[in-house]
Amino acid sequence: MALATRTDRRPSFARTVWDSSVGKKTVMAVSGLIMLLYLVVHMLGNLKIFFGAAEFDGYAHWLRTLGEPFLHHEWALWIVRVVLVVAVVAHAVAAYQLSRRDIKARPSKYVHKKARTSYATRTMRWGGIILALFIVWHVLDLTTGTVHPDFQAGHPYQNVIDTFSTWYGNVIYIVAVLAVGLHVRHGFWSAAQTLGAGSRTRDRALKITANALALVLTVGFVSVPVAVMTGVVS
């Protein structure tokens, strides 16, 4: 009788990744980077609002025809949406499970407390929750128009101006954008460490890139409500 030579079958790649705290962080890093890439593109697209209704609405229409004739109408947009939903869900579920593990691992607090981590690091969890809630409102407001009074499909320029003509629209949006900035500041650098891309020589460059990305995204996104409030865009 031949004896089995292989006795320790390791679990599959996906199982190993999802079951390990290090692997789950990898899922967060990759999904986070996908969302970050989208945010940069989204922010650049938003800036078209400064060049008039025709250019902004035309850009929105082009997004629907992107990939034609190879892809059917709106298919490119739907592919992006599916990828984003998968990324958001993976990121949120991994974050929830990892946070549960972290909180469980430190059940009793120190009597003598000291807060030494940076503000961006400490606000990752609450910032993430704020962002998740914001995404829901943002989609209902400017994509589906469910919570948007007088929503006009196909006229995003007017819809954007409507949203930023209300005080709550501005408050929700600006708070969320500041949360994005803080989240990206710690998140980008952390993703690099999780993926093993960081090193002593590269650390400065990574931190500068994280800060630059956070700043550019914050300024770029905030410029739109500020422009509507100040009447630069009307």
Partner: peptide, 25 residues
């Protein structure tokens, strides 16, 4: 039952032997 890493960096600050945070990377 140890927690995961959120790269807060407090471990490397506390380490009496100066093990760098990059060790985790």
């Amino acid at each position: 039952g140890f927690g995961g890493c959120t790269l807060a960096g407090e471990c490397a600050t506390a380490c009496p032997k100066g093990i760098p945070l990059m060790s985790i990377t």
